[in-house]
Design a protein around this nucleic acid. Sequence first.
DNA 1: GTGGTCTAGACCACG
DNA 2: GTGGTCTAGACCACC
Lengths: 132, 132, 132, 132
Amino acid sequence: MAFEFHISTGSTTPIFRQIGDQVRIAVAMGHLKEGDVLPSVRALAEKLLVNPNTVAKAYSELAREGVIETQHGRGVFVGATRSVYTAAERQRRLEPAVDAMINSAVALGYRPEEIEQLVARRLARLLERKAT
Amino acid sequence: MAFEFHISTGSTTPIFRQIGDQVRIAVAMGHLKEGDVLPSVRALAEKLLVNPNTVAKAYSELAREGVIETQHGRGVFVGATRSVYTAAERQRRLEPAVDAMINSAVALGYRPEEIEQLVARRLARLLERKAT
Amino acid sequence: MAFEFHISTGSTTPIFRQIGDQVRIAVAMGHLKEGDVLPSVRALAEKLLVNPNTVAKAYSELAREGVIETQHGRGVFVGATRSVYTAAERQRRLEPAVDAMINSAVALGYRPEEIEQLVARRLARLLERKAT
Amino acid sequence: MAFEFHISTGSTTPIFRQIGDQVRIAVAMGHLKEGDVLPSVRALAEKLLVNPNTVAKAYSELAREGVIETQHGRGVFVGATRSVYTAAERQRRLEPAVDAMINSAVALGYRPEEIEQLVARRLARLLERKAT
DNA sequence: GTGGTCTAGACCACG
DNA sequence: GTGGTCTAGACCACC
């Protein structure tokens, strides 16, 4: 498995969706390829400190979409890949998230420089954690 | 009052939060100033085709935050801008939004500098609109 | 959870505020600590013989203040104590209550020293109860 | 007229009740005696910066109780006095107000010394204003 | 099971 | 007229 899950409790997006989206995106980006193995429901739930039902819900949704295939007793595998994001589509997918964040910040009375600083700080923190 | 409310039913963000955020942002951007009158609960409910309770919920949340002041029998007014939350609290409230955005970006394969650039670009666009 | 809710319908203070204040005070007095579980919305509504929405309103106000944390599908928990409001804001919120008390006292012919003494006496009584 | 009205907007007790209570108490304390003249509705409304209707409501309630008598075209006068508060009754009437204030303060996380300080400060401010 | 949102409609208090 | 509270009951999302 070539990528790490990150979830943020306290976000408005439910946890099961965060998990599902990360798999979908990783597949679309080519970071996950057909046949790659995903962590088991229990293992991922333990790692992310969430309820196993939550992971199961994300996986079952992905399975219904054909993104992954669960093979009884063997594990969870990435299904046949179908499409990959273009650069334009990548940006089209990120902008709403950026705008939503900026809206929250403005509503809280943040000034633009402060927003940039906070983003930079959280990015640094993330990279640091990855390095560890 | 020089600004219009608009809501989108069917969005994942609840209506009462859409209303509240629009007021918060309008105040932060200077489009609403201290003493400005907001539409009455009933009037706004009628205009947006929602239940008056929904508007009242948005207003009461804003009132507790000090963004607006409701005067019984008179109406709803924009309050004096003041720092209600401690710096730590403001950051605590923004962080989930920032992290969610970063998670999406990382999953989409964005590199840190790219993320910062995109944020800066969207912020610039916002300031532009503010000047207008 | 070592404490009991009780409300008085017929009081001028609304039920949802009575519930909220009891939680706030219990937390401030140390009777409720971080991580403690509060009764579910439905359970408390049933016990107090009020509409679940009324309890939900109290809880959502507490959640926005950070006093409690609601976890979807799991329940309601006491949050970490932290300073949410700036010193100025805390004072701004208390002043009306202080002034109302002073107004009553002055109208009753109390002299300033007497007022301070009475306040001190009631505070002492409160601390005593806290120790118990 | 031997006494000053004080109202606190932002308090939970409605303005018309604050006005009424102050007259009732002044009469019961002997600060206002039968035949004393009260300010006109308009004059008091102007002085307190409130809606004349609010003063009128307080006065009409007092008139119904016989505490005051409005004489068309002449003014508003204190009616026949009936009873005066004993010391015990004075305290019995103030304690709930003190306790309510203390409860608010505790709910806001104030510590006892802070409460005493704030009370002292507001008292000083009141006396100062009176001296002016 | 949990909490969150919304509607509909009633009643009250205030100005 | 205004906002505030409460009830009843529905539907949804999450765990």
